[in-house]
Design a binder for these strands. Structure first.
Lengths: 104, 104
DNA sequence: ATTGATGTTTGATGGTTGTCGAACTGTCGT
DNA sequence: ACGACAGTTCGACAACCATCAAACATCAAT
């Protein structure tokens, strides 16, 4: 019997991508900012973080690639949103992988 | 009201170390092997993984530094054990950091 | 003490990656 | 069409890191 809602289990590939994406402090900080509101504009990130636009763009590409962020375009602006289900799936898979067999 | 047992909250520093430690696939694999039993010898890891002793030692140092592994010496052998509370604290902190304010 | 086995440390190397600046693309007003 | 603003992409560079081989340290048994 399942006690948790059936998360869409990450592929081994995506698991790696998420882990890598979360490993960089700057990327983690970006993720946190975006997560602090329902959506977050790229422009706002560029103002908030002391790095070049190019660097922001690079990091966002990685976060999207990992599936942790969904991006939407609105005119000249781009908006980001955290996909918490993916993050939840990652943590679930993480705990699952280090659980002893035959233990809860 | 708290629904979860109060985990010993990771420091910002340890949070980074754990994220970094989990980012390398080899290190993750080592962690999984160790987690598959109550304890795991370094020797067994050296046999199981197709990398040099030096490399294993390096990875284990990182895992210990992150607090994910506890190591114990027994005669000429060294044994490792996963610290699941730390892993749990990491995932908890991870979810906490990307939760919107005023949302469950 | 000498040998053999287990880990650790060190130096070198090749690959990855975070960062910048600049060039480029795309969109909105005027 | 032009200029201003928003993002992306590219080339280069420095820092980091996974890996190896070899030297070193530690322990056990002969």
């Amino acid at each position: 019997m399942k006690t948790q809602a059936p998360q869409p289990a990450l592929s081994a590939r995506q698991f790696e991508l998420v882990a890598k994406a979360l490993a960089d402090p700057r990327r983690m900080a970006l993720l946190e900012s975006i997560g602090s509101e329902r959506e977050y504009s790229c422009q706002k990130l560029c103002v908030e973080f002391p790095v070049s636009k190019g660097t922001i763009s690079h990091h966002m590409k990685e976060l999207v690639r990992a599936g942790l962020i969904e991006s939407r375009r609105e005119g000249q602006y781009r908006f980001y949103e955290v996909r918490r289900e993916v993050l939840a799936a990652y943590t679930a898979e993480l705990m699952r992988r280090v659980s002893k067999v035959g233990e809860l």
